[in-house]
Structures are given as structure tokens and as C-alpha cells.
Design a binder for these strands. Structure first.
Lengths: 246, 246
DNA sequence: CAGATACCTTGACTGAGATCAAGTGGAAGC
DNA sequence: GCTTCCACTTGATCTCAGTCAAGGTATCTG
């Protein structure tokens, strides 16, 4: 069942080589990383790290999608981060994990044992610097999301999520066709609800409404076409051009 | 009107010396910082940085409280960060500011011109490392807040905010009296609403309700006493001991 | 093939919080 | 002392999203 697209073993062939925490490393530094890295795969639905657990590794998502979630005692859950390929997992300098990390799809991770990685960080400014930039980007994304959670309507929330996923895909697929964007939703309705602070019924209703109004086209339950990205952005409440990040 | 508690000019006397971005700097490094630093004061209500503006400085909050806010075209606003003394403002490596930064109370900032600070960061691992830790802390706080915004009830939101403010004060005032905590709210009802994703009427109603139920005591509109911190934490939905940061 | 399961949709009703509106209390200004 | 203003409170009503419930569809299993 786990058919990981996982056919490289050294960093130079790595699909996230130029975007992950190792992006700015030179050949020597990469060699040091090679020594402490190992790959792990996780099936969709599996928990990668439990909140409160000791973290003994950090690493990068190579392929697939993982999510960070917080859960209250009574079961209410909120997704607080979506980890895409090249995103970093774990926190140098902290013992215990603050959130659950779950594999939303099948996931391949490039892991580093925590202690050696921390040592390497202290001697390799390229890594520390890159990690700071990535963390600042994540902080911006988290704050962007706070606006979505705090002030947007259900319809705007769905549109916001779709536009984030669409934009991510757009950055991977050619940019010269901004006309119509096509992608598969990597999340179930329930996962979307957890991300958006909604119930899955509301998610379903709003997706149906956006479909009825022609903002999106649906084929099956997951295959989405955005005929007019500008229209979607308006529905999301992010007027026009304002670019924000995943 | 602006009576800044601002009676130091060199770093060794600085009240945030041990907690700000300069915390780990040694004497030599501090001297370099002294050369590029300058102080600015802002009155309550003043905007320190406008979203989209070129940022030509970064810096630390020395005293007072500032807030990061995002605003939609139709006027809906969401506060996405609360900056307390020692918190860092600005983002090395980015040109434009992503949010408005506003002085909630009178604020004193220790500013560094951006370019020299970036240069210094590249040559001073102590600063870069400290900034990474602070950014990771802020990211944790932002994600904690996402749970509040996405999944908590109005009453729980208010209790969460009060417990954050109480905990911050507790970390400044002596710890040996966990029995009853007293502080002044540094935010208007409207600012609380913007932070919590509520309306100011709902904030007012829930504060009244918590008062009526004996969870808090109010003297005037701003002076709060928490007779039983554990009770407040329960109301916030953060069961018992689970510690989280400002 | 029947039955189970996971994921999704839709409908009817409810309720928490928003909205609209009026009023209170205290400080500042004339 | 009176007015004005601002921050806040309280009440009445409305509405959006939650809750509860039923049903649909595709995939998997024995």
C-alpha cells in the first residue's frame, strides 16, 4: 500500500534539495548531513510524533503531506500547521513535542538525530540561517491563518484554504497558465474542518455552495478546478493581488 | 502625557538585557550593538509600523505593549500578536512589513537600523541563535492561539486571554504567592475583541459573566483579581498544569 | 454477491455570538 | 457645573454555523 516515490538516497538527487533546511549548504556541509540522516516512511493516517513525547529526531518532509494538530481534553481538535514537502519538523533546543504530527497522506521524511543536528547547526551558519528564514515564513503563515480563523465566514474560510492549496500547486506547475488551476484536495472534509475551525458538515455545505455558484468545479469529491483564480481570491476576502504564503 | 520609564542609555542597565535578542551577547558584541542602536518612544494608540511599509529598522520592545494586527478591506481586524517587553519587532531579510504594529500603551523601543543589524547577525551567532529561539517561541504561541481562535467558546477565549496576561505578570512578580493574582488589563474591550475574534459586546458580556460566577473579581473596568488560578485555567479549557507561553 | 466501512451530502432544528440600540459612569474641557 | 466624549454595559433580536439525523456512494471483505 505504501508506494513511496522514494528513489534517491543521496542529497544531490533530492527533490527538496533547494528548498529544505539544507538549501544553502555547500558540498562539504551536505556531506556532514549525509552522515547523520536517515529516511523514514509513514502511511496515511499514522501519527509521526505524539504531543508531549520526547523528540529524538528532527527532519524534513520529502514527499506527502503531514499536519500539526492540537487536541483539547474533550476532543475538540485544531490543525495548526500543514507540512508540505521541504517543510521542517521538530524544534532544535526543545525536548518534548508541542503538537501531534500526523501523516495526512503517505509521507517520506528525511530525519536527523536531534543531538548531532543541533551540534551541526552550531557550527554551520548556513543551516541555522536557513532554519531562521523558514521559521519566520511559518510564523507569517500562522498569523495569516489567525485572521482566517478569527474573522472570516465559513465560505471565506473554504475559499482561503482552496486558494492556499491552489497557490502551492501553482508554484510547482508552470506559471504561464494562470487561467484555470486543477488539483486534487489532499485533505478529507474532516481534516479541512479541523484546519478551518468548522464542522465537517459546514465544510461540505460550503463546498457545495461554491460549486453551485461556479467558483469551483468538482469532479468526484476531491478533484477541483478553479476556473478563475481572481474570483476565488475575492471569495476568500483577500482582495486581488495581495500575495501570501503557504 | 508620555511619561516613559526610560532612564537608561546603555545596555548594561537595560531592563530587558537578559531576555531580548541581545540576551546571549558578550561584552564585545554588546558594544557593537550600542553603536547602531537608538531609542524611540510611541504614544498609546500610535502606529509604529504600517503594513506594507518599507521597514528600515528592527528592534525590541523595552517597555509598554504593542500589537500586531491585520485588517481586511471591509474593516474586519484581527490581532495576530501581542508584543511585550523584550519581544522583537521586524524581520531581518524582508523588505516590507506584513502587519500593522501599534502601540497599545505608551511604548519605548530599542531600535537598530536594519542593514547594520543584518550584517551583525551574520557575524554574531549569539544574536542569530537567540533570534531563532525567540521566533520558535512566537511560533508556538501563535499556534496555541490558533486553537483558541478556532475551537474555543467566547467564555473560554476570555479566560484564555486572562490567564495569559496573569501568567506573564506572575513571571515578573514573586512566584511564592500563587494564591491570588492581581493585575491591570492592558487592553481595551475592543482590543481584546480583536485579539479573540469576538465583538466588544461579547467580550463585555463574558467578562461580566466570569465576574458574576466568581472566577474573577473586578475593581473598576480594568483592575482584575484572580482568586483561584486553577479555576481560571479550567474555564479556559487548558486543563490543570499544561504550561504554555505568552 | 451481501455486508461493512469510510467518506461525503443534505435537511431540519437549535443556539452562541453578532448586530442594533439604548444607557451608564467617569474623566476632560469649557 | 455642565457638556462632551470615551470606554464600557446591558437588552432585544437576528443569523450563521453547529448539532442531530438520515441517506448516498465507492471501496473493501468474506
Amino acid at each position: 500500500m505504501l508506494k513511496a516515490q522514494f528513489d534517491h538516497t543521496n542529497c544531490s538527487d533530492c527533490p527538496i534539495r533547494h528548498r529544505a533546511v539544507c538549501a544553502h549548504c555547500d558540498a562539504d556541509e551536505l556531506e556532514e548531513l549525509e552522515d547523520i540522516k536517515y529516511y523514514r516512511t509513514f502511511e496515511a493516517g499514522q501519527t509521526i510524533i505524539w504531543s508531549g513525547d520526547q523528540m529524538n529526531f528532527v527532519g524534513s518532509v520529502v514527499s506527502g503531506i503531514a499536519s500539526l494538530t492540537q487536541t483539547m481534553e474533550d476532543g475538540r481538535t485544531q490543525m495548526v500547521g500543514l507540512l508540505l514537502p521541504s517543510d521542517f519538523v521538530g524544534r532544535p533546543g526543545r525536548e518534548a513535542a508541542p503538537y501531534d504530527v500526523q501523516a495526512t497522506t503517505d509521507v517520506v521524511m528525511c530525519c536527523f538525530r536531534k543531538k548531532p543536528f543541533e551540534d551541526l547547526m552550531n557550527t554551520t551558519p548556513h543551516i541555522a540561517h536557513r532554519l531562521l528564514q523558514m521559521t519566520l515564513d511559518e510564523l507569517d503563515a500562522a498569523r495569516e491563518w489567525m485572521l482566517v480563523l478569527g474573522r472570516k465566514t465559513a465560505r471565506e474560510k473554504i475559499a482561503s484554504l482552496l486558494s492556499i492549496i491552489a497557490r502551492r500547486d501553482a508554484s510547482i506547475t508552470p506559471k504561464d497558465k494562470p487561467a484555470s488551476i486543477v488539483f486534487d484536495l489532499p485533505l478529507t472534509r474532516e481534516a479541512m474542518a479541523d484546519y478551518l475551525g468548522l464542522t465537517l458538515e459546514t465544510v461540505s455545505r460550503q463546498i457545495s455552495a461554491l460549486k453551485k455558484d461556479g467558483v469551483i468545479l468538482l469532479e468526484g469529491k476531491r478533484h477541483v478546478t478553479i476556473p478563475d483564480m481572481r474570483r476565488l481570491m475575492e471569495e476568500a476576502g483577500d482582495d486581488s493581488d495581495g500575495g501570501f504564503l503557504v
